[in-house]
C-alpha cells in the first residue's frame, strides 16, 4: 500500500475562510476535505494516512517556521508520496503548496505532486522544481484535477516513466523528452498552416518563451517636484462598494476621490477584497491606502503634488489579462494628469 500525506489550507479543511488564515500548521490522521476526491481516484492502490493543514496567511508570513513544522510532521509519518492542494488560482495557497512540496522533495527525496492553474503565482515560482498538474482556475475544477493528480502520483510512486507535459498533464518544466510522433513533420506543418489559413485554432510545437519584463523607469530626481498617485489591489472602496467591484476575479477597477483626512475611515471606506481577512482594513483603510501620510508629506513639502483620485481593484484570483488591461487604462489617465510616480499597495 502506498502511503500518502496530503497538504491543504484552512479553507479546504473546513476550519474557516480568511478570518482563520492565521491557523498554525497541524496534522490530523486520515483524510480531510479534497483528500476524499483523491482517495476516490486511488481506490485500493494508495491511502492518505495523514493530512497537514496550515492557514495561508500563516504560511506566507512565517514561511521558515511553518516549513520547519511541516517537515517535522512529514518526518514522523515517512510517506511514500506527498501531495499538496490543488490550489487552483489561489495565490498564497499556490505559493504554499509549491514551497512545501519542494521542501519535502528536497529533504526526503520522495515524489511530490501539486496542482494549480497556470496563472497562479506559485506555478511560475515552482513549476521547474516540482510537478504541478495543470488545473482550472477555481474549485469547480476539483472533479477534473483530483484524478489527474492521483494518477500522476501513483505513476511517480511506482517509478513509471514520466511522459511529456502535454501527455501527463503537468505544467511544462523546461525538460525536453524525445518521442516519435505518429505523423511526420512536413504533414504536421502543412496541417497547422491549413488551420491557420482557415482561422482555426492550432497548437504550435515550439512555443516561444514569454519573457514579459519591463525595464525600470528612471528614478524621480526631485521628489518635491514630482506628482504622485496611489493604486491598490487591496480593494479599498467607498462604503457600500458603489461600483460593485467583485470580491474575486474582478472585471473592473474603481477610481475615487479621497475622503477628507480626519474623517473616520470606517465610516467612509471598506474593502471589497474577498481574499484576506477584511476586519483590519474595514476598521482603518489607511492600513491599505496610506494617503494620510502621503498628504502629510506633501504638506511638509517633501513631495510635490498628489493626483486627486486613487485607483483600486481586488487582486484576488483576477486574471492577468484583466489586471494588465486595468493597468494600461490607469496609466493613460495618470499620464494625462502628469503623474510621475505611483505607490501601488497589495494585500
Amino acid at each position: 500500500m502506498i502511503k500518502i500525506v496530503h497538504y491543504i489550507n484552512q479553507f479546504y479543511a473546513g476550519i474557516g475562510g480568511e478570518e482563520m488564515a492565521d491557523h498554525k500548521p497541524e496534522m490530523r490522521e486520515g483524510i480531510v476535505g479534497p483528500g476524499q476526491a483523491l482517495m476516490a481516484a486511488f481506490g485500493d492502490a494508495a491511502q492518505i494516512t495523514h493530512t497537514i493543514i496550515c492557514g495561508d496567511s500563516f504560511f506566507a508570513e512565517n514561511q521558515a517556521d511553518a516549513t520547519a513544522t511541516i517537515l517535522g510532521f512529514v518526518e514522523q509519518i515517512k510517506p511514500d508520496v506527498f501531495i499538496a492542494g490543488p490550489a487552483f488560482n489561489a495565490g498564497r495557497y499556490g505559493v504554499a503548496c509549491g514551497s512545501v512540496a519542494k521542501a519535502v522533495q528536497e529533504k526526503f527525496e520522495i515524489p511530490v505532486v501539486t496542482g494549480m492553474y497556470e496563472e497562479n503565482p506559485g506555478a511560475e515560482m515552482f513549476k521547474d522544481s516540482v510537478y504541478i498538474i495543470a488545473t482550472k482556475n477555481s474549485a469547480s475544477g476539483m472533479r477534473d484535477a483530483a484524478p489527474k493528480m492521483a494518477n500522476f502520483a501513483l505513476k511517480l510512486a511506482r517509478g513509471e516513466e514520466v511522459k511529456a507535459s502535454i501527455i501527463d498533464g503537468y505544467l511544462p518544466n523546461g525538460t525536453r523528452l524525445n518521442f516519435f510522433e505518429e505523423k511526420r513533420g512536413s504533414e504536421r506543418a502543412v496541417n497547422m498552416l491549413l488551420k491557420k489559413m482557415a482561422g482555426k485554432p492550432f497548437t504550435t510545437e515550439f512555443p516561444m518563451p514569454a519573457f514579459d519584463r519591463v525595464a525600470p523607469a528612471a528614478a524621480i530626481k526631485d521628489l518635491s517636484k514630482a506628482r504622485f498617485a496611489i493604486v491598490t489591489s487591496g480593494g479599498i472602496v467607498p462604503k457600500g462598494n458603489p461600483d460593485r467591484i467583485e470580491s474575486s476575479s474582478a472585471s473592473k477597477y474603481g477610481e475615487y476621490e479621497y475622503a477628507q483626512i480626519g474623517s473616520t475611515p470606517q465610516d467612509v471606506y471598506e474593502t471589497a477584497h474577498g481574499g484576506y481577512d477584511p476586519v483590519y482594513a474595514n476598521v482603518d483603510s489607511y492600513r491599505v491606502l496610506p494617503y494620510d501620510v502621503l498628504f502629510e508629506l506633501q504638506k511638509e513639502g517633501k513631495i510635490g503634488s498628489i493626483h486627486p483620485k486613487y485607483y483600486t481593484t481586488t487582486g484576488n484570483g483576477t486574471a492577468v489579462k484583466s489586471s494588465a488591461a486595468f493597468g494600461q487604462e490607469i496609466a493613460e489617465k495618470l499620464l494625462a494628469d502628469g503623474v510621475n510616480a505611483v505607490i501601488l499597495t497589495s494585500t
Binding site: 519591463v214 523607469a217 493604486v231 493597468g327 499620464l335
Partner: peptide, 23 residues
C-alpha cells in the same frame, strides 16, 4: 498593474508582504 503602469513610463514602487510574488 505594476508592469503596465511602469511600461507607460511612470515609476512604480510596489508595497507588498509576499515579495516573492512581486518578483
Amino acid at each position: 498593474m505594476v508592469k503596465e503602469i511602469e511600461r507607460a513610463g511612470i515609476a512604480v514602487v510596489h508595497i507588498c508582504t509576499i515579495t516573492p510574488i512581486s518578483m
